[in-house]
Nucleic acid binder design. Structure first.
Lengths: 108, 108
DNA sequence: CGTATTGCTACGATAAATGTAGCGCAGGAG
DNA sequence: CTCCTGCGCTACATTTATCGTAGCAATACG
């Protein structure tokens, strides 16, 4: 895949409108993106621990999402290894927490 | 594709764990799912108006997401035509509103 | 009848995700 | 040093999802 870090421009579908919410909605609307943020909400995880947490998702996509989320400034690779949320990423994750309660009521 | 409405069981990746948050994260982590909810946050839209709002996304995916979101109970097709959010869907959408403000600060 | 809109589908082309395997690198034993 | 283990990350063929264009049946209006 070699999805090498585009500089500033990245084909984020919804961003043609210029509205950042569209870019964010597109970024988070990719497979495993939301899940990764969710799994990282606690302590940092190594790439393999994250893979295990994400139900053995293929490392290809995980790596792709991780790169995108890192470029977006939500995730970072700690010095001692292991992925964790940046302050910004943690803030984003907080935004999603109400979703947990919602899901519990929704499950049917 | 013929993604016909499975009865109750649908291969929602994360739901193997039994945690509803995973099923929700997977459902919302599909292309255009978040965007559709977002565009429907106001008044109901016809399928074509929604397509226009979603940057001319292909009707194939839109229809697929719409079906999934309807099965999940978030979206409904009004009697006079046009898709709108159910009370539950509106509630879910409220959960996402903070994301808008977050995106504005994040845009860089 | 024609025209225009609705929700929805078919289908070939293209892009993305999956699954398995393995790379190079670093840190500890022995 | 060599062997071993785990790290982040990548290759690549297969499968799946999405795209883009076209068009269907049903309904409504004139």
């Amino acid at each position: 895949m070699t999805k090498q870090a585009g500089s500033t421009t990245r084909r984020v579908r919804g961003s043609r409108t210029g509205r950042p919410i569209m870019a964010l909605l597109d970024l988070l609307g990719r497979r495993w993106a939301l899940r990764i943020l969710w799994e990282l909400r606690g302590e940092p995880l190594t790439s393999r621990a994250l893979r295990t947490a994400c139900d053995e998702a293929s490392p290809t996509v995980l790596q792709a999402r991780l790169t995108e989320l890192r470029e977006a400034g939500f995730v970072e690779l700690g010095d001692g290894g292991g992925y964790g949320l940046t302050p910004l990423g943690r803030e984003l994750c907080e935004t999603f927490m109400p979703l947990h309660r919602f899901a519990e009521r929704w499950k049917r």
